[in-house]
C-alpha cells in the first residue's frame, strides 16, 4: 500500500487530490510524512488541516508543474491568482516548497 505510485492529499474542507508520489516528494514535509511509521505512510493519505481546497489544488498543480519541468530550462513562470497568494505562501512555507537547500535521503 505504501508503495503505491500515487498518494492522496486531503484539504481541510474535504477535497482530495491524487498526486504522483514522486512529484509530491519535492516537499520536505510530505516526504517526512510518508517516511517512518506514521499513519500517512501506511495509507498514502496526507491530510492537511490548514490548507483550503483551492490552495491545495494550486499546490498540486505546482507539484506537477515542477515535476514536468524539473530538467528543463527557461520554464514559463507559473501563474498565481492574487486572491489566494497569501494562503499559498503560507502553504509553501509549511510544505517546505521554498528554495532552501533541499535534503534528500538516498535510501
Amino acid at each position: 500500500m505504501s508503495d503505491s505510485k500515487y498518494i492522496t492529499l486531503v484539504s481541510y474542507d474535504g477535497f482530495e487530490f491524487v498526486v504522483l508520489r514522486e512529484a509530491a516528494l519535492i516537499s520536505e514535509t510530505i516526504r517526512a510524512m510518508l517516511r517512518g511509521a506514521f499513519k500517512e505512510a501506511q495509507t498514502g493519505r496526507c491530510e492537511f488541516g490548514e490548507i483550503r481546497g483551492p490552495v491545495l489544488e494550486k499546490v498540486v498543480e505546482y507539484f506537477h508543474y515542477y515535476h514536468a519541468n524539473r530538467d528543463q530550462t527557461d520554464v514559463p513562470d507559473m501563474d498565481i491568482p492574487v486572491d489566494i497568494c497569501l494562503e499559498l505562501l503560507m502553504a509553501a512555507d509549511f510544505l517546505g516548497l521554498d528554495s532552501r537547500p533541499q535534503m534528500r535521503d538516498l535510501s
Binding site: 507559473m78 491568482p81 509553501a92 528554495s99 537547500p101 533541499q102 534528500r104
Partner: peptide, 21 residues
C-alpha cells in the same frame, strides 16, 4: 545531501506566491 534547485528551471512555489503578493 543537497540537491540544488534547477537554476534556470522552475522556481519554488514560495517565490511564485511571493511574486504574486
Amino acid at each position: 545531501h543537497v540537491r540544488l534547485l534547477n537554476p534556470t528551471g522552475a522556481r519554488s512555489l514560495f517565490e511564485y506566491a511571493l511574486k504574486a503578493l
